[in-house]
């Protein structure tokens, strides 16, 4: 058995979700290789080579992979897929974009967003916004899988010293091209990697009021998230959304403020270790998953919380 993990990166740094994906590969067993496809991304390959338990890093360093567009990236992975029994990527917007395309090129039914490896062909995954957990067994020769990062503890980023093998571009496609990107800049930790997350919902009433959350986030070293209602209302950008169709987080502490607790929101945060809910409606469903619930008006509770921290 041999697993290929597709690295997620920005041409400079390896993204942490890659380490959780390697962890899932380790549970499957056998050797683990990492593919780094990017442009001027030697530093990423070096980082990947240091990841604990990885046997080999395959580096495709070419301008064609600068933005890791789905068409060229899927073709490249396909060209080396013959060596592997499993191909894994994190279930991020990157992995979700590329892997199903690869999967169809290989005539394989992808297994999306696994949360547990039962054996090398059997996996658990949430369905219906996490209301149920399905156990599925794949009969495909190559298993193409996306991995929910929060379900696997990351492997060590250091301790390994694998070889780096360079390969050249293969199957470069001109079907799509990159125009531009607006990547949010923030001094706070990334939502999916933070150990504390504080999220606001429609109850926040405006984008300006999010500063009440930001003050607390800065005291706690936390990331700031939001419900879909808050994003749709334009309070905060789309990359703040936590939930079934946003980001999945599982921090040590999740604080939900002015969020009712719709199943689609819970799907993105209910595996957090400790959940706090602040809501003025004592019957809000969020209290059913909260370890500590505070029935209060957030406009009173947040300044007080900020002061007491």
């Amino acid at each position: 058995m041999s697993t290929l993990v597709i690295a997620e990166h920005d041409n400079t740094n390896l993204k942490p979700a890659t380490l959780n994906t390697v962890a899932a590969a380790n549970v499957i067993g056998g050797t683990v290789h990492i593919l780094v496809a990017g442009n001027s991304c030697q530093s990423v390959a070096d980082e990947a080579a240091a990841v604990d338990g990885v046997e080999k890093v395959i580096l495709a360093d070419d301008s064609a992979y600068e933005n890791q567009l789905a068409e060229s990236t899927a073709n490249l992975i396909k060209s080396i897929s013959g060596d592997y029994s499993h191909i894994l990527a994190p279930a991020t917007t990157f992995g979700k974009n590329v892997l199903p395309r690869l999967s169809a090129l290989l005539d394989v039914q992808q297994i999306s967003e696994i949360t547990e490896v039962v054996s090398d062909d059997t996996f658990k995954r949430p369905i219906y916004a996490g209301s149920c957990i399905a156990t599925v067994k794949s009969s495909d020769a190559i298993k193409v899988i996306t991995v929910r990062a929060t379900a696997f503890d990351p492997v060590n980023a250091s301790g390994g010293s694998s070889s780096v093998e360079s390969i050249s571009a293969d199957g470069v496609s001109g079907l799509s091209s990159f125009v531009n990107e607006e990547i949010a800049q923030s001094d706070r930790p990334e939502l999916t990697a933070a150990s504390i997350v504080i999220s606001g919902g429609r109850g926040m009433q405006s984008g300006d009021n999010f500063h009440l959350l930001e003050t607390i986030a800065d005291k706690l070293g936390a990331a700031v998230g939001a419900s879909r209602a808050a994003v749709d209302a334009g309070f905060v950008p789309n990359d703040y959304q936590v939930g079934q169709t946003g980001k999945i987080v599982a921090p040590d502490l999740y604080i939900a403020v002015g969020i009712s607790g719709a199943i689609q929101h819970l799907a993105g945060m209910k595996d957090s270790k400790v959940i706090v809910a602040i809501n003025k409606d004592e019957d809000a469903p969020i209290f059913q998953v909260a370890d500590y619930g505070l029935v209060a008006d957030l406009f009173n509770a947040l300044p007080e919380l900020s002061e007491k921290l």
């Binding site: 933005n67 991020t92 917007t93 799509s176 091209s177 990159f178 125009v179 531009n180 990107e181 990547i183």
Partner: peptide
């Protein structure tokens, strides 16, 4: 496109 870090714009040739 809504991506994890923010927004990305790409051009695709039709049909797509």
């Amino acid at each position: 496109r809504e991506i994890d870090g923010g927004l990305q714009t790409i051009k695709i040739s039709l049909p797509a």
